[in-house]
Design a protein around this nucleic acid. Structure first.
Length: 260
DNA sequence: ATGGCTCCATACTGGAGA
């Protein structure tokens, strides 16, 4: 079972890229972030024609998340991170697919620091820590996937000293990520590549991709009962080199099928 | 330190992204 996550930076601007990549790699499940489309403007038909059923939560201009599946309709569990009814950003959607709970998330960027946007990021992280523990306590297989907007360690930035005061690398953000792994979640990319530099994002400026000036901010966190099924993982870097591409690349994990 | 680029909105410019 192959599961992928991709921050598309507008699903409609990126539709040709997404369809090309789906045809190329045919993941079973795909989590999308930054749809940048209202609910009515999600390209459901085009994705159905490509073999994928979708659930999504759109929003005007910004944010927006979706879960696609070619192995059966995603059974939606919720479309908001619990803990703040006044949070209107479309940043979280959760569904059950093939016996696994898939949580697709788009964490707030949080810049500038300090300020209300960073406060929002920290409160969102706090809610995520609570919900992540709740999911573990439920005892079913779970995958948290998406754009965490967190650089977990110095290995994960091309020049970490440039990021020390950035919301993506601030101690509060990294500590929250550490708390998740302390809860028992397994960072799948780091598990497969313990010593290698792996990036998932390269900004549009200054030929960042050509210089490999990237960040690792898109992550898969596997619950302890899913982690032993991890076979392989990777980043489809070549997609970042396509014309009219996103500033993120697709990230994926391959899991052994459940034999039980 | 700044600005470089890309997208959206209802636009000839500004906000957001990371």
């Amino acid at each position: 079972m192959k599961i992928a996550t991709y921050n598309v930076n507008s699903i409609n601007a990126r539709l040709p890229i997404v369809l090309r990549w789906l045809e190329e790699t045919q993941p079973d499940v795909l989590c999308l972030q930054e749809l940048k489309a209202i609910q009515e403007n999600f390209p459901e038909e085009a994705l159905l024609n490509a073999g994928y059923q979708s659930i999504w939560h759109g929003q005007k201009s910004w944010n927006g998340v979706a879960i696609l599946s070619r192995i059966g309709q995603p059974e939606e569990i919720c479309r908001a991170l619990p803990g703040d009814p006044e949070d209107v950003h479309s940043r979280y959607i959760e569904a059950k697919i093939n016996g696994i709970i898939v949580s697709c998330l788009y964490l707030p960027n949080g810049n500038p620091v300090p300020g209300p946007k960073f406060d929002y990021k920290l409160s969102w992280l706090n809610r995520l820590l609570i919900h992540a523990q709740t999911l573990l306590d439920r005892g079913t297989p779970v995958i948290l996937a998406g754009d965490f907007n967190i650089i977990p360690t110095e290995m994960d930035a091309y020049k970490p000293e440039r990021w020390v005061n950035d919301a993506l690398f601030r101690p509060e953000s990294r500590q929250a990520f550490n708390t998740l792994t302390d809860q028992g979640w397994v960072d799948a990319i780091r598990k497969i590549y313990p010593d290698q530099t792996v990036y998932t994002f390269w900004d549009y400026f200054r030929n960042a991709f050509g210089r490999d000036a990237g960040l690792r901010i898109d992550h898969f966190l596997l619950s302890p009962d899913v982690a032993p099924r991890l076979i392989s993982a990777g980043v489809d870097r070549h997609v970042r080199g396509w014309e009219k591409t996103s500033d993120h690349a697709p990230v994926w994990v391959e899991l052994e099928n459940n034999k039980s």
